[in-house]
Design a protein around this nucleic acid. Sequence first.
DNA 1: TCTAATTCCTAGTATTTTACTAGGATTTAT
DNA 2: ATAAATCCTAGTAAAATACTAGGAATTAGA
Lengths: 152, 152
Amino acid sequence: MKLSTKGRYGLRAMIDLAQYGGEDPVSIASIAARQRISENYLEQLIAKLRRAGLVKGLRGAGGGYLLSRPPEEVSVGDILRALEGNLNPVECPGLAGDGGCDGADLCVAKYVWKRINESVNRTVDEMKLCDLVKESRRVQEERENLHPHGIE
Amino acid sequence: MKLSTKGRYGLRAMIDLAQYGGEDPVSIASIAARQRISENYLEQLIAKLRRAGLVKGLRGAGGGYLLSRPPEEVSVGDILRALEGNLNPVECPGLAGDGGCDGADLCVAKYVWKRINESVNRTVDEMKLCDLVKESRRVQEERENLHPHGIE
DNA sequence: TCTAATTCCTAGTATTTTACTAGGATTTAT
DNA sequence: ATAAATCCTAGTAAAATACTAGGAATTAGA
């Protein structure tokens, strides 16, 4: 039960984009360098984000990507679902309709799966991209105060 | 981000065991038949449960398995962790200690991973095996009332 | 208009994980 | 003795993951 690199790298890419992209678009190459992710692979992840309407791509020299919506209106859930397909650890036929499973005992477990699914989705939906950017800025500032002369 | 059949089948096996096993041990064959799971595969899952101390195996003819603890003292989390290893969707070095990740931006995502991990574990830990057995009995009784003559 | 920088698109592939299957050794009730 | 069961380990087919590779299309700027 693991979140794949799609979700892990992709969220970091979105945070990076929110942080370094203001007016000007941010290129895949620059995100890949900062985040130490393969350019080719990152490209595929960002393609998913684009198809989900979370980022806009600008082609040609000087192009790159921009957030489609302000970070306040993008939840971590939006991002991870775009990358992972969905965030339901268990896909059980019984969860959709009311019937589904074969026997009675087969079906009791579905209450567990339902709660797990709800818990994960609620958790990621209540975190917004802007929260992460804010936190990132805070952490960076703290570092500056500890090492004022740019010591690594 | 999926829970594997280990967790899915294994939880059903534990519910079955709690429901059909009182004094007498329950055999793998009977669980496998009721739950429609391969005997050989189920055996491996129950081995994990045994190694985690959740069930006791009784060898020889007439043998089978028994719960080690009463269903009130076994959480769904205990069961799923025994089967899946752990229930942390993200294993991030930064989550263990306080350092870990390379750069500042690499590390902000860890707050997300932490929350997801906590949310999943909290959710499964607050459900006990006895709750599921109770629910299962309730559902079965309801069926009886709807179909009093044993109609399928 | 040419060139370089960039996104866009698709196919392929090595590695890992999952979900089993198979079969023999050991133990125990009858 | 025999049959019923757990116990143990090795193997394996299929699926998913995590990439790599490379070319087509677009655009800014010289």
